[in-house]
Design a protein around this nucleic acid. Sequence first.
DNA 1: CTCCATTATACTCATCAAGAGCATAATGGA
DNA 2: TCCATTATGCTCTTGATGAGTATAATGGAG
Lengths: 322, 322
Amino acid sequence: MQQQAATKKNAPDAGKAQDVHVDLIAVVAAVNGCEPCALTIGEADTLPSGPFELGHRSLQSGLRAWVERQTGHPLGYIEQLYTFADRDRVGDEPQQRVISISYLALTRDERAPDGPARRWRSWYDYFPWEDHRAGMPPLVTELIGPALRQWAQSAGDDSLRAERGQRIAVAFGFDDRPWNEELVLQRYELLYEAGLVAESRRGRPEAGVAPVPGRAMVLDHRRILATGIARLRSKIKYRPVVFELMAPAFTLLQLQRTVEALAGRLVHKQNFRRLIEQQELVEETGEMAADTGGRPAKLFRFRHAVLAERQAIGTKLPLTRS
Amino acid sequence: MQQQAATKKNAPDAGKAQDVHVDLIAVVAAVNGCEPCALTIGEADTLPSGPFELGHRSLQSGLRAWVERQTGHPLGYIEQLYTFADRDRVGDEPQQRVISISYLALTRDERAPDGPARRWRSWYDYFPWEDHRAGMPPLVTELIGPALRQWAQSAGDDSLRAERGQRIAVAFGFDDRPWNEELVLQRYELLYEAGLVAESRRGRPEAGVAPVPGRAMVLDHRRILATGIARLRSKIKYRPVVFELMAPAFTLLQLQRTVEALAGRLVHKQNFRRLIEQQELVEETGEMAADTGGRPAKLFRFRHAVLAERQAIGTKLPLTRS
DNA sequence: CTCCATTATACTCATCAAGAGCATAATGGA
DNA sequence: TCCATTATGCTCTTGATGAGTATAATGGAG
């Protein structure tokens, strides 16, 4: 218990370890139509957040309270994302430490349209280079690629140049490498390092190349959003979380479009159906879809039983390049 | 920016959101021989930890400082695990909130043997039911299974009984279900809920069945260790992290034994080698192993280049039942 | 010196998941 | 009636994976 004593020792007296402010911050995701969206509040591009308070029973309940208060939107599925302490805050007195505990939340919107308090915004407003559903966006090859390569070339020594070149190629799938939709955070951080996003230019107005297209966000919120997108893109492959974003009944095509919206790439229709059905993730409702053009489709619902039946099985999405 | 203002508002004045104490806590893992170990400090079973202080540049550097101070052991690879706020602290004044940010660290021991300050302890001292390298331990079928089933039966209503029964079967691989070595945390939490571990009996000495074998730890440290083990068991399958635990040069069998120690189960030797080699994770050093009985083995080293070459490729371990 | 236990290493085989494409079935509208 | 559009069923190929067989080196027991 000697260590325990050491830990406790600093607790009673207001020592140098005391002065920590804890923020809870949420990436609230939904898919509206074919667009994956994040919930923002206020005028600026800001994620819902607020301080962790004594009244909160737990971190999660504190987060739910803040999001509901700020947006009126109740949350369903929640998972912790990451805890940051090294935020790029300007003007903080050195005495004040800030810790941000971020969460990913999944819901359906539909409750109400955008209002003064909240606003759904497409992920791809913030990360236009992440949407590959119509193939690699010209933006990537024409703007980002050259700009990043220029940054790589500007490095002092050879090994750094090579290292940067490789990171760029891996992250963006240049040089015949495959596009990996999960590397959202790595891509954002590369652009940040290269000074190609607005966030990395704040406070130091340098005369560099113009920032790449894509809305900036307040503070480090865009980085947190990137973390959330990356987590979700990864998780849909091994856990049945997509269904948190679906209406109670849906067609397989709607499900597919949702997955595609999240992953930012297309999947092979027949293989997708095969996968979903063979894993017994869904069951027919018996109804048919209200017509959407073409042959009517069966409606399905999520088999909630799978959550109990098995752990760690999911929706490996069969990816395609077309 | 309205929300931003709201967040900032509580910062300057010492409002009710201020009083938060942040602890950093580490699961330091190494594999000594064929045993996966965690680093503990002091007399009791305690993970290295200490408060996040102003002097710390970042959460990670704060953690490194604490571990090094408490154990003399410098850390290499680190990743964040989880942030807890609802710790089962007894005697905390309600005014004092504690947040624990936990990390997983990978090293090799060898620097020095156990000393007064630190001690390596096998994971399976704490979780004897997790080691399936010699098949399902009798402990599981003879003790844990019956005790958990009894707990399930003690539930009030039918649906709760059924739900508990299913959770038990899934977590421990009963009823012909496969053993899933990643469900370390779920298994611990089941035992906790069922009152079968010492930690869940603290403060409420009930007259129930005896706790299951396995050392307890201080506070909720055993839960944090379980989280770390689960993370590592999952991660070795898709990222080349095992090599953080290996000496610079090793034989393929040593690598295999390390993976087996972590996973708590055996792998098919030939398939393991095939996988490692076809993924080009290692390269020959040219040397042969100092004899270990039998035909001498080639020594290999990790190809550090893979870390840059590709993201998200790893060591899918081919599992076997033998 | 031989036999054997032990470990290393090379192949083979069957099964199955996944990428890809073809074909047919319903529907509404031009 | 033809066609665009979506739904749905099936086949084919490839590659990954679980599992087993066979052979190569080594040291130690006898």
